[in-house]
């Protein structure tokens, strides 16, 4: 069973986001970049399936050179091979263009199953996985928190939580699964794992290596144009409910929620 895991690097979720002086970007100076948290679940699940069925796990990342570090982390966790799609022309690409580049790279590989995070915790779009599946003409299984590959390795059964219930879905392979928290507990890279990762195959590809036209990528090719990025609407600190005892405070709060906010 050969498995691809798509990887994105995002600002650590503790990062305070500051808007750049152009009003159209964020300040990236002091950002700590980490593997997208949902992608960690993809790496872990791929490793568990490989441990059962054999085969290879290949990490395919896209972005600037710094993404290499997160791919190395995945290799240290136990993945077999890494690939980074990196090209200046990719800078500023939208989801569809990113999916095009990833799909072009994956098409050249041998795969039964593809994992990607259900969304990047930066742009919060959650469409790259589905767009890759469309471009490869395979089924997508979105926001999945349980994966069972059939014994014969030809199909997969997944759990997809939706509002108020969980759908159990069967799909033939190959398929693309987007991962949700709860799927598994990602392992940490061990020290021997980190040492071994340094010797594992790692490829770097440009757009032309993938046979793609740079004009279809980057800021200029965006179909969704950013007009403005702004801080969230300010929320003023409100009233502190005073009182001598917890009961008095609770009574004051209940009164405000009823009389003023009218929510109870």
């Amino acid at each position: 069973m050969n498995i691809i895991v798509c990887l994105k690097q995002v600002p650590d979720t503790e990062t305070q986001i500051k808007v750049g002086s152009d009003g159209k970007s964020i300040v990236t100076d002091d950002i700590k970049w980490v593997m997208n948290p949902y992608d960690e679940h993809g790496v872990e699940e791929a490793l568990r399936i490989k441990e059962k069925f054999g085969g290879e796990v290949t990490i395919v990342g896209l972005g600037p050179k710094r993404v290499t570090e997160s791919i190395r982390t995945a290799l240290a966790m136990g993945a077999d091979k890494g690939m980074l799609i990196s090209d200046e022309a990719l800078e500023g690409s939208d989801s569809l263009a990113v999916a095009k580049a990833l799909a072009a790279a994956i098409k050249e590989l041998d795969y039964d199953l593809i994992f990607s995070g259900q969304r990047g915790v930066d742009d919060d779009m959650g469409v790259v996985g589905a767009n890759i599946a469309e471009l490869l003409d395979i089924p997508q299984l979105s926001v999945i928190d349980k994966v069972e590959v059939a014994e014969d390795g030809k199909s997969v059964k997944v759990n997809r939580p939706i509002e108020g219930s969980t759908l159990v879905i069967e799909s033939p392979l190959p398929a693309l699964i987007t991962t949700q928290k709860g799927l598994n507990e990602p392992r940490y890279a061990s020290l021997p794992g980190i040492m071994k990762a340094k010797k594992k195959p790692f490829d770097e590809k440009t757009l032309s290596d993938l046979g793609l036209d740079a004009a279809e990528f980057g800021e200029g090719a965006r179909k969704v144009k950013v007009l403005e990025i702004k801080p969230p609407p300010a929320r003023e600190a409100g009233k502190i409910v005073e009182g001598e005892t917890p009961q008095e405070k609770a009574a004051g709060l209940a009164k405000l929620l009823h009389d003023e906010a009218k929510v109870i």
Binding site: G126, V127, A130, N131, E134, I162, R222, V224
Partner: peptide
């Protein structure tokens, strides 16, 4: 942007080859 809408819109944007603004 429900569970269904997010899944459907993502696939549709690929099928139609258009940009999309989520959520």
């Amino acid at each position: 942007a429900s569970a269904e809408g997010k899944d459907l819109s993502a696939r549709l944007s690929g099928k139609l080859g258009v940009g999309m603004a989520q959520d």
